[in-house]
Design a protein around this nucleic acid. Structure first.
Lengths: 350, 350
DNA sequence: CTGAAAGCGCTTACAG
DNA sequence: CTGAAAGCGCTTACAG
């Protein structure tokens, strides 16, 4: 039924008038409270449905209801639209939230070093536009997270682990910590001994853990760690390209395999190797970590330890929502396991 | 400065008290009204900044302010997370809105045939969670759009043109209408005469226009239109695969080129041709429309008429926001031109 | 230039 | 089981 300009304003008072009850009762029906006899409930619901009445959010909020909205804060200095994988994260968060009855307010920011960006995020929390915020791409020790949690705000952070903090309003989801070691086990099993490592961004919990487990994996296999085969990148493709180029220029002898911190970095490694006329995997094998959607599209298809990102974000979003509802025994973090996806980029040798 | 649990509630009354003014004046300062002497303004601002005070959204809304939020309604029955291109649209909308000071509430829905989904969207509008809604993936004659606009709600729709409607609250952005004809001109210029067409979804304005301009292009070049070389798909890769497979099974003689409604459909055509052992472009050339991010990654790289989607969404979002602010002379639609990107999928013959 | 007061639309103790 | 009333935090005519 259409609301004409000349019609009375459609608020709870008007519904109450039409149904012959008080606004209190309308509110009780709208909110599904038990103490309304079914006859009254039906009569009120009929009026509500006929008029397509929905309580205005503004009134509900002021009376103390929650927004039913999560903030989604994506921090990345590279253009997110250009990275296919990034964009899917946003979709996973939105769909997970929707499944649980929540809406998502999406914010994309270049960095958190800019005071203006920090204030932008704080404003969204302090205006109470959202019940909690999901964060991607923040440093593990980001002070903003500490400030928000100490103010009682709820944050759900991707790739974040702070054993020194166990506030119930600091939720996170993490990659298993030993994927680097699994990658080393795998390439050693393929006969590789000359192993190069391209590390990620050491401000990310996952990158640190992969670094550590790359190294302990090498030790476990009694493989000499050669400084000229260890390079630092970031988590992006261009950073992987740059690091691999430096490696190629300075390494003297080529390694037989390059283990990349993640698949995007591996794509950068591909680029550098191709440019140098080095065949993959003929001369140098490459292995990644992530299970990037592009891993199957590049040539040769990239062997990688893959993660189910749908699962990642559902875990993060659902536990963040549990924190909003102050559920008891809500796990503060979850470590998600990887699955090896063997493709064509890593060759068995000898 | 941290707000301790024991501190007074930080609202406009508290700020007023600390600054020695009334709540009215605090509100005037917050909203940047002119009639406050700079001395008073500075004093109040100092208190506001020291306490990191932001007016609660709930109060502002109830007093009649706008939300500063756009809804983003993405309708797609295929998994959006799987389509790389789709995800970037979401990023473009979010970044365009942010540039203009708006936030974005993201909603992903499988279809609009389900009454429940229709109500989900209506609820978001009627609760006044948003100032306007951006729509992607709706049929050109979608009744929900008519209902929303007739209720005075503002919609901004991607790929939507209704010459019979010129409400100031129905905003749209469109593909130029003659890209199909440009594709025909191009392949004819390459010497092709045996031209097949895979059309899109005829409920989309762009697909209809491409269909029309494919046909008028063929006529312009005096090329016989052969029924067995015309197939309907949708806008997705699987639909292109299916249509191309049918074409190959039924066509008898192969065309020398297949013009696809868009790049996703073209990828499906690739798949079908590869499966049939037909080489691209050796035996059959393929041309797309869109400028999909994957066009450069497939083999052979796809020749396509590309659109600047960043521009698409900035146009849509900025004119939608102008409609919210009731700007005079706000253009209801804009047609965005294409740019030919020649890659390796379309061969010159004879 | 500034404050007191009304009003926005809901929910929820409270009283009956 | 139900209604009258208070209250949430802001903004904005209105009066001075």
């Amino acid at each position: 039924m259409q609301r004409k300009a000349t019609m009375k304003k459609l608020n709870s008072a008007e519904i109450a008038r039409l149904a012959g009850v008080s606004r209190s009762t309308v509110s009780r029906v709208v909110n599904g409270y038990a103490n309304v006899p079914s006859e009254t409930r039906d009569r009120v619901m009929k009026v509500i449905n006929e008029n397509e009445y929905y309580p205005l959010l503004s009134g509900q909020l002021l009376a103390g209801k929650r927004t039913g909205t999560l903030g989604f804060f994506w921090i990345s200095d590279s253009a997110i639209a250009d990275d296919i994988q990034s964009s899917t994260f946003l979709v996973h968060v939105t769909e997970s939230a929707a499944e649980l009855g929540y809406l998502v307010l999406t914010c994309i920011l270049k960095n958190l070093t800019d005071k203006e960006n920090i204030n932008y995020i704080k404003r969204i929390f302090l205006q109470e536009r959202i019940d909690a915020g999901i964060f991607i791409g923040v440093n593990n020790n980001e002070p903003l997270l500490d400030e928000l949690t100490s103010r009682g705000k709820i944050v759900g952070v991707f790739d974040h682990f702070r054993p020194d903090c166990n506030e119930p309003n600091r939720i996170s989801v993490n990659f298993e910590i030993d994927t680097g070691g699994k990658a080393i086990d795998y390439v050693c099993g393929m006969g590789h001994k000359d192993i190069a490592i391209i590390d990620g961004n050491m401000n990310r919990y996952s990158s640190v853990k992969r670094h550590e487990s790359f190294l302990s994996g090498l030790q476990r296999h009694n493989i000499l760690i050669r400084r000229e085969w260890m390079y630092y990148a970031d988590v992006t493709e261009p950073s992987g390209y740059k690091a691999a180029k430096e490696l190629l220029e300075n390494c003297g002898q080529l390694p037989t395999v390059i283990c990349a911190n993640n698949d995007s970095v591996a794509f950068g490694v591909y680029h550098a190797l191709e440019e140098a006329g080095i065949s993959i995997p003929g001369q140098v094998s490459v292995i990644g970590i992530d299970g990037h959607v592009r891993a199957n599209l590049v040539s040769p298809p990239l062997t990688s330890f893959a993660f189910d990102f749908r699962k990642f974000f559902f875990s993060l979003v659902s536990r963040t929502i549990s924190a909003i509802n102050q559920k008891e025994g809500n796990p503060l973090t979850e470590f998600i396991p990887s699955v090896l996806v063997e493709r064509a980029s890593c060759l068995k040798i000898n």
